[in-house]
Design a protein around this nucleic acid. Structure first.
Lengths: 209, 209
DNA sequence: GCAAAAGTGTTGTCATTACACCCATGA
DNA sequence: TCATGGGTGTAATGACAACACTTTTGC
């Protein structure tokens, strides 16, 4: 139960990795970059990076996410730390995993999102990190998360789709509407959809203080 | 979004710390040791230690917990990683926090458990770690956790107390019994309490496969 | 008028809450 | 016989599930 100091203890690099989820065409997507150097040259990988000397992991993530999809401080969550001694073949690196959720994907970024149910082989242990992240997400389906995955205003049916994709089950449309409207977490706004080739939907927004 | 390699990145020591909870006299208790060296000489601290070169954090924790309260592999959970650059005044150390739950405290160990609502000043950031751990516990009240906090067989009312202490609210005794019995997670065993100076209680056990 | 998605109510079942008294034992 | 915790039932309320058709728009 006591610690011994000594030469037997190594040090490690400490990294953060962000699993940035979004939803497109009723599929859960994750943001990946192509590696441009060894190891794992040309493999896809999660964004991330090493902690600077004076930074907390949250600060590292903020820095790395600056300007990316408008991800702000309150919209990411630490979910697990990966410590397999062989996870980086170069030297020992532990990775602190974060989840972030984004809604408004610019068209230029769209090609960097991949459906999580059909990923190729990724760099390092990033498949494992993504798997653990989606388990976490599913286990914590909650309006705070959901609200990150839709734009500021949205039709009710869109948010139902988000619930369905994350929880991986279909819901009854009437029951869903009753429940979310009675819960008081969303309210109607005074504009409606335009330029859709069907009946325009009323739009809603979350009412978090 | 891309990583740059270079001298600007430091390395860090990586530690685990275990927040070992138990319940005594309807209070949530945590296991602490007295530090026998600087820094924080004579302050109380959480048990833990540094990762060895070939270990995952889980393995480090298993090693440290070997023989301690009979804590086995399946009975601890990683909950958060602490990365404040100043959390250890000697050198940079990140700490991966784990929760463990124990029920059978031997009398000789009793004095090492402290009620979490009246802790003195602790070593390092261990107060913060304990706070975060109890938040996690409260948010994840669940039979898998609860079953770790009671002996193999127990009276129904004991387990109600455990629920009450963790969720921090009182429950109605009749409703609690109905609910837990209907849920099918516990079953009666064929012995009853003895040597109590009141009506002896029937005893139950969890029925996890 | 057709395609496409939006929107709407009722009923049955089940889970949750509130609530107060008698029982079995040891001292 | 008293103190201590163990053990029990019923009624009201609220949440959730199942279920099918009409509405509004663009083309």
């Amino acid at each position: 139960m006591k610690q011994k100091e000594g030469l037997m203890y190594e040090t490690a690099k400490v990294a953060v990795n962000a699993v940035i989820f979004s939803i497109k065409d009723q599929r859960l997507m994750v943001y990946l970059n192509k590696r441009e150097k060894e190891p794992f040259l040309n493999y896809l990988e999660l964004p991330g990076g090493l902690l600077h000397p004076e930074e907390t992991a949250d600060e590292t993530l903020s820095r790395k996410m600056k300007g990316v999809f408008g991800i702000k401080k309150q919209s990411f969550w630490q979910f697990y730390t990966f410590t397999d001694p062989k996870r980086d073949p170069r030297n020992r690196t532990v990775s602190i995993g974060y989840i972030a959720l984004v809604s408004n994907i610019k068209n230029t970024d769209l090609e960097d999102f991949y459906p999580i149910d059909a990923l190729p082989k990724l760099a390092f242990d990033h498949e494992k990190i993504i798997y653990k992240a989606s388990e976490f997400l599913k286990k914590n389906v909650d309006n705070r998360f959901i609200s990150q995955l839709v734009p500021k205003v949205f039709p009710l049916n869109d948010i139902q789709t988000v619930y369905e994709v994350i929880s991986q089950k279909k819901m009854d449309n009437r029951n869903f509407r009753k429940k979310i409207l009675n819960s008081g977490v969303i309210k109607k706004v005074e504009v409606v959809q335009k330029n859709v080739k069907h009946r325009p939907a009323s739009l809603y927004q979350f009412v978090f203080e």
